[in-house]
C-alpha cells in the first residue's frame, strides 16, 4: 500500500511530546460529539493556524512521543476527520498509537528530522520506506506490528469486531 501527500508540521517545526490535549483541547472534546466539528479544532492550542493549512490526504509529521497524555480517542478522531491520511513521528505514546489503529488511522514511526512543512512525501508501506520527493531522499520506516496490520486491513476495531464477532488478532 502507498499514500502520497504533503507533510504538515504543527508549528511548522519537528516538535517532540505533542500531547493529546494539543491535538484536541478538553474545551472542545467534552462538549462536541460531531467529529467533523472536532476536526476544525485539531492542534488549535499549539498551532491555531494548523487546520487552515491542511489539504485532504496530508500527513501530520512530528518528533518523538507523539500523542502522550490523555487517552482521549477524540485526538486520532480529530486527525482522521481533518482528512489527514497518516501521522508520521519518531515515536508514539502507547495509548494514542493503539487508538489510531482502532480507528483505522495509519501511524508510522520514522526518523522525521529533515522533513519540512510542505514536503511531498510518499509512504510505501510494503517497501518499508517514505520517499521525500521534495528533498530527493528515502527514510526507512519501522515495520508495523502484526496486530496493527490486522486492524488497519480491517479498517479499525469496530469493523474488525463486526467482521469476526470478537478479537481475531
Amino acid at each position: 500500500m502507498s499514500w502520497q501527500g504533503k507533510a504538515k508540521l504543527p508549528t511548522q517545526k519537528i516538535v517532540n511530546d505533542i500531547n493529546t490535549d494539543y491535538v484536541i483541547s478538553g474545551r472542545y472534546k467534552f462538549k462536541i460529539q460531531d467529529p467533523n466539528e472536532l476536526a476544525k479544532h485539531v492542534m488549535e492550542d499549539l498551532d491555531p493556524d494548523f487546520y487552515s493549512r491542511l489539504a485532504p490526504g496530508d500527513f501530520l509529521v512530528a518528533g518523538s512521543n507523539f500523542g502522550c497524555g490523555s487517552s482521549r480517542e477524540q485526538a486520532p478522531m480529530a486527525i482522521k476527520y481533518a482528512n489527514i491520511a497518516a501521522v508520521i513521528a519518531k515515536s508514539f505514546a502507547r495509548i494514542f498509537y493503539r487508538n489510531c489503529f482502532n480507528l483505522g488511522l495509519l501511524a508510522i514511526e520514522a526518523d522525521t528530522d529533515g522533513i519540512a512543512e510542505g514536503d511531498e512525501l510518499e509512504i510505501d508501506l510494503d517497501g518499508g520506506r517514505i520517499i521525500n520527493k521534495t528533498k530527493g531522499r528515502e527514510i526507512k520506516i519501522a515495520p508495523l506490528p502484526r496486530t496493527m496490520q490486522t486492524l488497519l486491513a480491517d479498517g479499525g476495531l469496530v469493523e474488525h469486531f463486526k467482521k469476526h464477532g470478537g478479537f481475531k488478532i
Binding site: 487517552s71 486520532p76 495509548i95 482502532n102 480507528l103 479499525g156 469496530v158 478479537f167
Partner: peptide
C-alpha cells in the same frame, strides 16, 4: 491501564482485551 473509547467498547462486549 488506560485505553481508548473503542477498546472500552470492545471490552464491554467481549469481557476481554488484547495486550502486548
Amino acid at each position: 491501564t488506560g485505553i481508548g473509547s473503542t477498546d472500552l467498547a470492545a471490552g464491554m462486549i467481549a469481557g476481554k482485551l488484547w495486550f502486548k
